[in-house]
Design a protein around this nucleic acid. Structure first.
Lengths: 142, 142
DNA sequence: TTGACTTGCATGCATATGCACTTTTATAAG
DNA sequence: CTTATAAAAGTGCATATGCATGCAAGTCAA
């Protein structure tokens, strides 16, 4: 079987689009010293209160070990802190710091700009539809 | 401005979907010792003949330096070779080897299985439409 | 209480990804 | 021919990502 005679790879299409879109958001966030992944982590910590690593990883559709390493720079820069849960010392609870909140607030301006550019280019309706489709894909088991 | 009162992040939706889909394809390719990115590189080299690093990177929507490092494992394992272009010695030409071709042919079975599962779950029509949308996004400047 | 099992994280290993900067080679201006 | 410029890759640095494995802590049955 030759791929040339078959359907183009869906996975490649996803990865390329994700790289392309990520680049735009990363550039918009760069002046504030955050990557898109880091921004997402801060947003979720700020909005939904403290999370354990496992819980946040599931929420963000990441591998637990990936998140565990991704938070290191945020910890180092004092944007988040990890506390050991007093009730269950296996659990490491992630919490955003005031400094992290400040950084997040500032970076949100950059995010909003990238988001606006995307929405303008795609049309808000198409963007919303696409987000819905992507979310559906994310929740679908193959 | 609070994100909670705004539109969810488009970028996060792309990245999560890409991670989720990539995981499925990676698992299907794992028995053949290839990652999805590596598989894509081999497919393009097998189909469109030799490419320079820059040209292939553009084609695959990757950063030149990312591709430069990604091909290292493929070179190491003898699946591809790089030759210096005799006409322009700045150019490094990438070429798939017979071993690479063999590996690619074998791995294509795994790829086809993942692809089939995706198409089944999404419906071929929806999958095709989604690929088209993703390609459009990839080609759009924000 | 103690041993089996489960759960939550960390670490080793490997690839993926991109920016800034450097090196090598080609090309065009003078 | 020499020099300025441009083009193609490579390197240093840093984060992103996930699998396999190891370790610590909690749970529950005997």
């Amino acid at each position: 079987m030759h791929i040339s005679s078959a359907t183009p790879c869906n996975c490649l299409a996803f990865r390329q689009a994700a790289r392309h879109v990520s680049q735009a958001y990363d550039q918009a966030l760069a002046p504030f010293g955050l990557r898109t992944t880091q921004f997402s982590i801060l947003v979720h910590l700020a909005q939904s209160g403290p999370w354990s690593i496992q819980a946040l990883a599931t929420r963000l559709v990441m591998d637990r070990t990936s998140l565990g390493r991704t938070i290191k720079p945020l910890e180092r820069d004092g944007l988040i802190v990890t506390d050991v849960d007093s009730a269950d010392r296996r659990v490491h609870v992630l919490r955003i710091t005031p400094l992290g909140q400040t950084r997040l607030t500032a970076a949100t301006a950059g995010w909003a700009e990238a988001q606006a550019r995307f929405e303008t280019a795609m049309t808000p309706q198409r963007a919303a539809s696409l987000r819905e489709t992507l979310t559906h894909v994310t929740r679908t088991e193959f």
